[in-house]
Design a protein around this nucleic acid. Structure first.
Lengths: 230, 230
DNA sequence: TATATTTGCGTATAATTAACGCAAACTAAA
DNA sequence: TTTAGTTTGCGTTAATTATACGCAAATATA
């Protein structure tokens, strides 16, 4: 039957989390299906009357208990027609960045286990999910340099050294602490709070806060965020 | 029936063309369907055993006679579940850049007419295609500044003034001719040919050619293309 | 009290960008 | 044949931005 389209459409969620100066991805161990016992990205089939973005947020919540309001579309994987051995499945991948230090994850109805995996310690995943994660990491690295998305990975109030470590860790580069601070502060979208962080050692450091309003005002005026390194 | 997924998957092609110092998009007038007599993007349903990228290249060829080997994925439109009034259809949009000055387009089996439309004179299109075109233009503008894709819109051999006009036209900005030339030449991926272009007026100008090999070598070494303006 | 550590601010130099000058090489008009 | 108009190709200078550091302040710990 030539005209009947036998294709299913799914969504997959890449949730990046940051804690203890490391980048993580949220993975689940599936309960059902041929990929049982493999770790995989949270995700599943889209319902007929449901938008793609609703679908991915729903699946993520059902499988990991993580409740987001927005995810950004990454890419649609539909060139390998055997990426799922059971049926032709096209997957629209979405990603989000969260502060993993205070987020409760728990395996829910559809997943056996839920766990954060360090970005450099991701096991062999179900379907083409290793490929999807790889392309999400590439996107994250790219965006980090020209959009202020790093703040999404940190708590509301953070140290400059945390921000600096985040950039070093994710981009795998050395940066000059003093020039980095100077540059970011010169943009004027960080507010200095009156709080100090619980000290580890050395001089006590003020906590900063990303001011999204100020950032949006700057964007209106044609401002363009950019962090480059040597 | 809760589990049955009643969603169709389509592909749409945004083909940008450049000629006479203007940017164009290729549109068709549809023969069939509820959107008859509306102009629309070339595209159609994906076959069950066909990759997404094959599908969009096939549809484009069938409808416009334009034969491409590669299109880049733009975005998947699937949030408006009524974007097609007949059925739930999710569309994966792809785009490509071509030199429109020597490309033969012709309406084929599936289309009534095929025509280049100037970017600032696009009519009201079928479905959500105006939205798709808008987002493709935004992507093109963005990419133009950090990837050397402008050359795809020009003939193999081109004048510096053509390249300059292309940037001015698409980005809608004034640029300094001399600084622009200096910067692009400093990258070292343009070869000067021995040919001169048929002269309009003024001093005869040498034709240049984009050397993709040299560009790739530079990329290997960590080079990063970028064109910024005041 | 001395030492190690991290923060916060500053300065000198190199590199890049932006703004503009001007002669060369042609066409077309006078 | 000259003159005016146009576009190219190469150059200079000032302003801005990036890079590479120096160093004292503020704390914990030995």
């Amino acid at each position: 039957m030539e005209n009947f389209q036998n294709i299913r459409i799914a969504v997959d969620a890449i949730v990046f989390g940051y804690k203890n100066n490391n980048l993580y991805v949220l993975l689940i161990e599936q309960k059902f299906g041929s990929a049982e016992k493999y770790w995989a990205l949270p995700g599943g089939l889209v319902k007929s009357e449901e938008s793609l973005s609703d679908a991915v947020i729903r699946e993520l919540h059902e499988e990991t208990n993580v409740q987001l309001t927005f995810m950004e579309q990454l890419y649609t994987f539909g060139d390998d027609i055997k990426r799922d051995s059971r049926n032709r499945v096209i997957s629209v991948a979405y990603y989000a960045l969260v502060d993993a230090s205070n987020l409760e994850i728990k395996a829910d109805t559809d997943a056996e286990k839920v766990q954060w995996f360090k970005i450099d310690g991701i096991p062999s995943l179900a379907f083409d999910h290793n490929l999807i994660v790889k392309s999400a990491i590439a996107r994250l690295k790219g965006k980090l340099t020209y959009e202020p998305i790093g703040f999404d990975l940190l708590p509301d109030e953070f140290l400059f050294s945390d921000l600096e470590n985040l950039y070093c860790t994710i981009l795998e580069k050395e940066i000059d602490r003093r020039n980095f601070r100077k540059k970011i502060l010169s943009y004027g979208f960080l507010d200095q709070t009156e709080h100090f962080s619980p000290i580890k050692s050395g001089r006590p450091a003020k906590l900063f806060r990303f001011n999204k309003l100020k950032y949006n005002e700057l964007i209106e005026k044609g401002f363009h965020f950019e962090i480059k390194f040597a």
